[in-house]
Design a protein around this nucleic acid. Structure first.
Lengths: 120, 120
DNA sequence: AATTCATATGAACCATTGTTCATATGAAGG
DNA sequence: CCTTCATATGAACAATGGTTCATATGAATT
């Protein structure tokens, strides 16, 4: 009798069954892999990357970022809201102005990790 | 006289000019930030993440991966070609079969880096 | 309370991208 | 050489996502 998690049969391709089953059993949970992809998706846009690199230097308000990146306030605000939802940035309000900053050191680490990789 | 890299004027928003200029000067090159985003984009798809996690365990041929992930051979092949273009996987041919593997340890590192982050 | 200013947000539009389907390539075996 | 089998690839389709435009919120100032 097969395990409840066994793979579907494959009649037209004779794959290397043992290997496939072993690797299958060692895979992380589907949900975890999905969340991981979602995380990278956030970093996978150059506007958001540029915003994060701004905030790496200093906390900044929305219109400063917009000015610096040469984009509209709306576009920046939309992207900040994406970054906010993913907890990659935090913010504080001061009067009419909202200052954004990187959420924690982990974000910086991930950024420099990737930067290392492409500078090879 | 302004530096050749100075920012455009902004008449309707009175941004914090000094800060903006300072952060602007410390930003990495546009092209680098673009490439960084492109790298993360590759990781930002759950099919590709799942493929990478398969290959983390063992080198595998295309149809094994397809079987394991319950997807068509074509879909997997297309994604492998994306991963190949970005040098995240390498491959070797053995007769009719092509075996894929992770390109280097750096890929594993990036994967576990992200996995750390979401497991908080 | 009315206005101004910084930011947020909803809808629409266009571009990008992942999958499918059909077909091509290219190696091994008869 | 003709077939078979594993993989690759091109075109088409559907879905996702980033920007813009118009407008809303909400805080400060008069």
């Amino acid at each position: 009798m097969k395990s409840p998690n066994c793979l579907p049969e494959c009649d037209y391709m004779h794959a290397h069954g043992d290997l496939v089953q072993r690797v299958h059993d060692q895979m992380p949970k589907e949900e975890q892999l999905f969340d991981l992809a979602e995380l990278y998706k956030i970093f996978g846009d150059s506007t958001r990357i540029r915003i994060l690199y701004c905030l790496k230097e200093s906390e900044m308000c929305v219109c400063d970022i917009a000015l610096l990146l040469g984009m509209t306030q709306s576009a920046i605000s939309h992207q900040l809201s994406v970054l906010k939802k993913s907890k990659l940035v935090r913010y504080r309000r001061e009067g009419k102005t909202v200052f954004y900053a990187l959420a924690d050191d982990h974000v910086t680490t991930i950024l420099s990790q990737g930067m290392d990789h492409i500078s090879e």
